[in-house]
């Protein structure tokens, strides 16, 4: 067992996965810590990594010439950041910036995608969790849109 396996196992995105599935993921994973204001991803850059946030907080921002970065949403400990199932060479459409010291597990997409292709059972599990997370984020954004555009 590598030292990353318990870290993966305790992240909500991997909850209740079988130990074998965890160790397959761990074979791809690495750990990283971002300082406050350090950038995890930048708009226009190719998406190469899938992040599992262990602690800290990440701001999703869109940069505007007149008002600088506009904060749209945050991702917290226990959230994921990134995309599964996109076409290769897809680009980030937001900046992701650590708001405080943030520890993440990084799953590089080439490795992760290969794992999903080779292990459809694990693939289905991960895509299901990804979709559930997206649904939560979209639900939140729809309510933000209502609040902002309709002033409610």
């Amino acid at each position: 067992m590598t030292r990353l396996e318990p870290l993966l196992a305790e992240h909500p995105f991997c909850r209740d996965l079988a130990p074998g599935q965890i160790s397959r993921l761990a074979a791809c994973a690495r750990e990283r810590q971002f300082a406050a204001d350090e950038v995890l991803a930048r708009e226009g850059e190719e998406i190469r990594e899938f992040f599992l946030i262990r602690s800290g907080r990440v701001a999703l921002e869109i940069f505007t010439a007149r008002r600088g970065p506009l904060l749209i949403q945050t991702r917290e400990a226990g959230d994921f950041l990134g995309w599964l199932g996109l076409e290769p060479h897809a680009l980030w459409v937001v900046d992701a910036r650590a708001l405080e010291v943030t520890r993440v597990l990084i799953l590089p997409l080439p490795c992760l995608n290969q794992l999903l292709e080779e292990d459809p059972i694990l693939g289905y599990q991960l895509l299901k969790r990804f979709t559930q997370g997206l649904a939560r984020h979209f639900a939140s954004m729809k309510r933000q849109v209502v609040n902002l555009l309709h002033g409610l």
């Binding site: 226009g44 869109i62 505007t64 010439a65 007149r66 680009l91 459409v93």
Partner: peptide, 11 residues
């Protein structure tokens, strides 16, 4: 249009 709109449209 606004900067963000032009950026994403061009992309």
């Amino acid at each position: 249009g606004p900067g963000v709109m032009m950026r994403f449209t061009v992309g």
